[in-house]
């Protein structure tokens, strides 16, 4: 019984040290949105001081309702809208099992991806369309859909006009 006490004491000491360390160095969060801005203040009207992308890490300095005071990996401090971050690092892309499966299936992306650049259906899809008797009009529709892009700035302007996301009042 006596032997247990030093062990328990060590455990309690280690837990205390870990808690203090966590508090001292702040919580680490990750950007969970495709893109996000760090601003100099806690409103959407404040200037952007850093542009981040999915998976970027941040240290939390303090919290204020819907906004977090953070420090980026480059040491830039500012405020980020809380919806754009998550405590767990987003997976993004294929997981390890999917990548392993791709290796076994011996797929060759470069050999079958069609139209270089952003535009167009993949060759394999074109081949499927031909085999399935899909009309050119319908192929063009999915082709246009595949190629369609909307710049992030336009989506931000749309959110702002609707008082949505970080632009909410």
């Amino acid at each position: 019984m006596n032997r247990r006490h030093p062990f328990l004491a060590s455990l309690i000491f280690m837990a205390a040290v870990m808690t203090i360390a966590a508090t001292a160095f702040g919580e680490t969060l990750y950007v969970s949105a495709k893109s996000a801005q760090v601003r100099s203040g806690k409103t959407s009207l404040d200037p952007v001081v850093a542009n981040l992308t999915l998976g970027d890490s941040l240290d939390v300095i303090s919290r204020n309702e819907r906004w977090l005071h953070v420090r980026t990996a480059n040491g830039i401090q500012g405020w980020i809208y809380a919806t754009y971050v998550s405590p767990s690092k987003p997976a993004g892309g294929d997981n390890e099992l999917a990548a392993l499966g791709k290796g076994f299936r011996r797929t060759d992306t470069s050999g079958v991806t069609a139209s270089a650049g952003a535009r167009g259906l993949d060759k394999a899809s074109e081949s499927y369309a031909h085999r399935a008797g899909i009309t050119q009009q319908h192929r063009d529709a999915v082709d246009r859909m595949t190629a369609s892009k909307i710049p992030d700035e336009e989506i931000q302007a749309f959110l702002k006009a609707g008082r949505l996301g970080e632009y909410a009042e």
Partner: peptide, 11 residues
């Protein structure tokens, strides 16, 4: 084995 593994984004 390949058939049992998840489908990747390219596919």
């Amino acid at each position: 084995i390949g058939g049992l593994l998840p489908i990747g984004y390219d596919e």
